[in-house]
Amino acid sequence: MPEFLLDGRSVPFEPGQTVMEAAIAAGIYIPHLCWHPAFEPHGSCKLCTVDIDGRPASACTRPAEAGMQVTSGSEALRRLRLRLTQMLFVEGNHFCPSCEKSGDCELQAMGYYLGMTDNHYPHFYPRRELDASHPDILLDRDRCIFCELCVRASRKEGKSVFALAGRGPQTRLVINSPSGRLGDSELDAGDEAAGICPVGAIVRRNTAYRVPIGQRRYDLAGIDEESLARERPLLGRADGPTED
């Protein structure tokens, strides 16, 4: 099996695997938010930026090649990822103190993992619309990080309920329904798209704060450990490219 070097370790890979897939399969965590083993990579959050033979690249989209030298665990990359995470925080309105996703949120867990202690950048305080029209699901756009996991999941389910519209600071999550409201869309509480949001943008009603502090996902393990345990068994489930 061909191999490449990741932070000095030999990582074997199947031809066609990305650097991310090979690393996760080998039990090595590379930070990421928009990547999910069940979907085609999106390459938008840039948290998985690694150094490959002296050049930055997204581990989730870059196919592995024999002999490449990959660096992921350097201090420079930690700082880069920290800044990216801080940008995600200031671009939205993330109020962890009262957010029901706190302790179960990948963005928050990433902040902890990278040693984030402030926002660094000034807040945008964007005005985004909350959609509570669905009887079972709440869409809080303030918390959206535009990872498009819901878009990809819904597309895979054949419903295509979500999409991103607008550009730059005007980017927003829009709903495929006559009124543009979630309540008029085809989304069901049981859909994968309703449960895949890594942050608190799409949440199911009647689930908030049910899990006591101390027993929440990231109370029990850091995002690196939790991610490997959850995502490693799902590798290889991505079926077919999305139409981005």
């Binding site: 103190p97 908030a208 704060y209 049910r210 899990v211 006591p212 502090i213 101390g214 027993q215």
Partner: peptide
């Protein structure tokens, strides 16, 4: 409630643990 200050516990109609 899991923390000395600002924990969670009460839910509509009861408690979480």
């Amino acid at each position: 409630i899991g923390k000395r200050i600002h924990g969670t516990g009460p839910l509509p109609g009861g408690m979480n643990r």
